[in-house]
Design a protein around this nucleic acid. Sequence first.
DNA 1: AAATAATGTTTACAGTGTAAATATAGTAAT
DNA 2: ATTACTATATTTACACTGTAAACATTATTT
Lengths: 197, 197
Amino acid sequence: MTKSKPTYHHGSLPEALLDAAERILVEEGLHKLSLRAIARLAGVSHAAPKNHFENLTGLLSALAARGFNRFGNEITERLEQANSSDNKLKLVGLAYVAFARDNPELFLLMFRSHSLDYNNPELGKAAGEALSKLSAHSVNSSDIPKQNDGPPSAMIRSWSMVHGFAMLMIDGRLEVLLGDKHSSLSDEQLYEILFAD
Amino acid sequence: MTKSKPTYHHGSLPEALLDAAERILVEEGLHKLSLRAIARLAGVSHAAPKNHFENLTGLLSALAARGFNRFGNEITERLEQANSSDNKLKLVGLAYVAFARDNPELFLLMFRSHSLDYNNPELGKAAGEALSKLSAHSVNSSDIPKQNDGPPSAMIRSWSMVHGFAMLMIDGRLEVLLGDKHSSLSDEQLYEILFAD
DNA sequence: AAATAATGTTTACAGTGTAAATATAGTAAT
DNA sequence: ATTACTATATTTACACTGTAAACATTATTT
């Protein structure tokens, strides 16, 4: 049953709030993402979200969970349409950085927000699943020697590099090194910079 | 001439405000760093900072500049007391991550705050000088092949890895991989994870 | 000494998140 | 069906925030 005219009870306010939040995130940025602005855009009073999300942290955590699910799906897609000779770790790394390039504000919310609750089960699950796709392939990498005793250096180095690149790119800090296109590099250019031998 | 008892005119309010800000940053974290809290701790009215810093962004930018100066000095110190056989790029990388480990909230302010103005001359200068010490040594690295035509991949990969590690470490995301000591690793442990062959 | 500039304070306003009290609508029980 | 109950939304209130304007005080310059 689809909603027709607005009634006192919205009917699907949680989804509407998340949609409104994402729209603000994309169009105006993370710093404009306030609880009251979200409620305003969704057409409800500023206290309405409380019935569905405990607080701002809860709403943003749900939004970040949605982002991690999308993130995980994109990684999977890229792996599925990959050539069998492709280096899987590099593919996942490229997916990581490409996601950050295409969804900068969402990426910031997911990885850098001080207003997320990673104890939120939904968020924890989504983030865990997405990030496990990273480790699943980094252990198969031959670029870095494996050590079964110490900490998983291969995984950490790989993750660190793509994560750091993503953050520096989004923050605009790579402009001095990469010029005007520092935030709009093609997949091929990203691969060349990060993974080419 | 040292200040004795409080007068209407503070005498050295800019420095006092930066000191108060840093104390809040260290003791309560970046999210507690508000203009009014800083003024409160410095013992002045909340509008007093306006005479010395245009706004909150201006004050935080000055604080970040102080951080970048300290950051640059620590890099230089580590290079000076280095063995001539040491890999300079790795040393600088270790200094980068160690600074983040020892000054997590300041590092966040410097690298992740949406409330900084990098057009601020003081901040731009301090950040540029500190980060130039990175590139000065990454071009001498033999770990990654040089390419004089394309983008400086060596510099970018090195910077990305240490920056990403620092961010993931501060955000607590490395706990699953590194256990309880994920945020208090020794220099030797950091070196092993990031740079050991 | 008087005028001016520098540096404070006070007051006001538009935002924010959160909580409590209230209103409305849908659902379940009688 | 009427009643009770639960879910959902609004209104109101409070304590914060950053910023700006008006005003007060002190220092400096003329």
